[in-house]
Design a binder for these strands. Structure first.
Lengths: 118, 118
DNA sequence: CAAATATATGAACGACTGTTCATATATTAG
DNA sequence: CTAATATATGAACAGTCGTTCATATATTTG
């Protein structure tokens, strides 16, 4: 009963640890949402768009030319970024300018870069 | 020539901005790698594994029981996490214990949570 | 050695995702 | 109003990904 001799099917489990960790796990829904957020960062096109918006507010066409993508592809991706509240639109006549929604985007990407570069 | 009257196919582009941003973009390969890193975080199973390892060093079977997954599924995911240097293994006899590789994992997940929760 | 067990791995299948293409909507100019 | 244009969106297709199942490898026990 020391937590090292309990079975899990055919496998042994460190039971005490598992119980302890279980208690500290956030709700499933929150973990799901978190994964959804990272999924949005997990595409090089979207990363490029976000990086471009680090520097300046840009319209859809600017981004398309900058990254060598079709207007449609960019628009679809901006929709994803917008629905995760990572970018925000500002409409000016026919043109829609996009910019970063908040500083979490910068921080997250910077942290990610640090990991890559070490 | 004020940067507002150049064409991009049928579309108008803010040329000066685009040129300026282009110069500041990191290399494509780096952006690709960054997206790959975030892709690893972009799965709720892997997020759960990482969160579990926040609390304790755990073996494959512990994680499987904790999350209600098969041993195989967990092992496959640990492989992904390991190859991104997010977790590290410690072998002890038949058992392999996994723990977080460094603190970037915590920081990144914490930042992501902040964005989710605001 | 053989048996038991903890983990790893390869193949395959279904589900999801990013792009393209065609088209719709919205705004401005004439 | 119509024409031009900037963006958005729906459908479809190809490629990717996570799981399962079967099996291989590695370690300990007897």
């Amino acid at each position: 009963m020391d937590g090292e001799i309990e079975r899990c099917g055919f496998l042994f489990v460190h039971e005490d640890m598992v119980r302890q960790v279980t208690e500290k796990m956030p709700e499933d829904e929150k973990l799901y949402d978190l994964a959804e957020l990272f999924k949005v960062f997990g595409d090089s096109t979207r990363i490029k768009i976000l990086y471009a918006l680090f520097e300046a507010e840009l319209c859809v066409c600017d981004i398309a030319q900058l990254l060598g993508l079709t207007q449609s592809a960019v628009s679809h991706q901006l929709r994803v970024l917008k629905s995760s509240r990572l970018v925000k639109p500002r409409k000016d006549g026919k043109t829609v300018f996009y910019s970063l929604a908040d500083d979490h985007v910068r921080t997250l990407i910077a942290q990610g870069m640090e990991h890559i570069e070490e």
